[in-house]
Design a protein around this nucleic acid. Structure first.
Lengths: 229, 229
DNA sequence: TTTTTAAGTGTAAATTATACACGTATTATT
DNA sequence: AATAATACGTGTATAATTTACACTTAAAAA
């Protein structure tokens, strides 16, 4: 049954474009790929796809991220809808999501399959259409979110060192952070657990591993506390 | 010319729903209307419309706000895309914008024409579809924005008193603010100009009018300063 | 044994946020 | 003319948060 008022309206192709972020070598990276079809075949592009009629938009985004990374356990948030008339060659409305993934879980065979690469956010090339703007908007949003919620942990494995965590936040904010102040703030939040083991990859002394305690975080939130990192 | 890859993809109705906000009687209000067609005819609804092929989404939103308020000088920002499969009866993807308008400029004849009313945000009825969620999301976003940019002025005429401005922020944050602290913060920002004239409507003593000095604000921003209110 | 490297630690000063109460200008009332 | 009523306007002290800053330590390599 079609309600009459909905007849004779214009319809649109709707795509999702995903800004898939990972953290590696002390820097945030974004997964981009060479576009496999015309127009702009061979241009650098975000990972995208069209929304199907039988899925909601967030599901489309999740599908796209899974398709191109092999990762299904992701943090996903919408950035917004991009709707300039000429943003693509056809009229395509694109809904942008950013995904935070543990880059260690990336299925590297997919890199070849899709001609995809992880690029440092500080070294992104020019991307097709309005994709660079999408990335800029996302970084702003991510900074906002990271300052108020502990979403950074989605970019790390389940154990990590404080120096690593710090460089993650430095990469998000794109500015240096004082070591002592950073540790102080984090540890007084009491959402991390120190482990016995050390990571000896980056120094002779080694840095203790920590893990994120989501239960404690949720408790604190329920008590009405909120954070800023 | 149609690029081949774009063929055979599903297409969607795309709507805009606008959360049109005004400030009156010490409270934020939202313009809502009784839905004039089935399904849910007579239900309370946000102001919306379908996106046309020849306009970008923001233009659609601006058109909708103009249509239902008669106001063209508005602050408009996107909230996001709402894409649940069953959010409407048909598959409709809705892009939500909020608009901040000077309610004094509202063309009251349109209220009758569209069966529309300004309702205090604290007293919104149940709205159709996912419109209540849209409003909740918008209020959060507005709080975030107001804390960091002086967007509140878009809700006022070009002169206003400090008690009015304070109650505007109290309405946005939905909590009381200390009078002296509020004035201190605002005046030290140095983006307001005190006028000679007083508003005597709300007290016998009268409150001085101020006006917002956008030039000063832009200067400060350029100097890399930023605000929090 | 010494050198090298990054990890780990505390305190003082500055800034910002919070809490709080009374005098004042003006109109309305008697 | 005097008084009452009302909302406007003002300052200071305390607490909390943020910032700046430098040396010791653990472990491996030379």
């Amino acid at each position: 049954m079609t309600a009459s008022f909905y007849l004779n309206k214009d319809t649109f192709l709707v795509a999702v474009d995903c800004i898939i972020m990972g953290f590696r070598d002390n820097d945030l990276h974004i997964l981009i790929a060479r576009r496999p079809f015309e127009p702009l075949k061979g241009g650098w592009s975000l990972m995208g796809g069209f929304v199907n009629a039988q899925e909601n938009i967030q599901e489309s985004a999740k599908r796209v991220v899974g398709e191109y990374t092999g990762i299904n356990d992701i943090y996903l948030e919408q950035v917004g809808a991009y709707g300039e008339i000429d943003r693509d060659v056809e009229r395509v409305i694109s809904v942008v999501y950013y995904a935070l993934v543990d880059i260690e879980k990336f299925d590297t065979s997919l890199a070849e399959k899709y001609d995809a690469r992880w690029i440092r956010i500080t070294q992104l090339p020019e991307l097709v259409f309005d994709h660079n703007k999408m990335v800029r908007d996302t970084i702003k949003l991510l900074q906002q979110r990271a300052s108020v919620k502990p979403i950074g942990f989605n970019l790390l494995g389940d154990q990590f060192t404080l120096p690593t965590l710090q460089s993650l936040y430095e990469s998000i904010y794109q500015e240096p952070i004082d070591k002592r102040n950073f540790r102080k703030k984090l540890l007084t939040m009491d959402i991390l657990e120190k482990l016995e083991e050390k990571d000896k990859n980056t120094s002779k002394k080694g840095a203790f591993y920590y893990k994120y305690n989501k239960e404690k975080y949720d408790q604190l939130i329920q008590q009405g506390l909120h954070f800023s990192l």
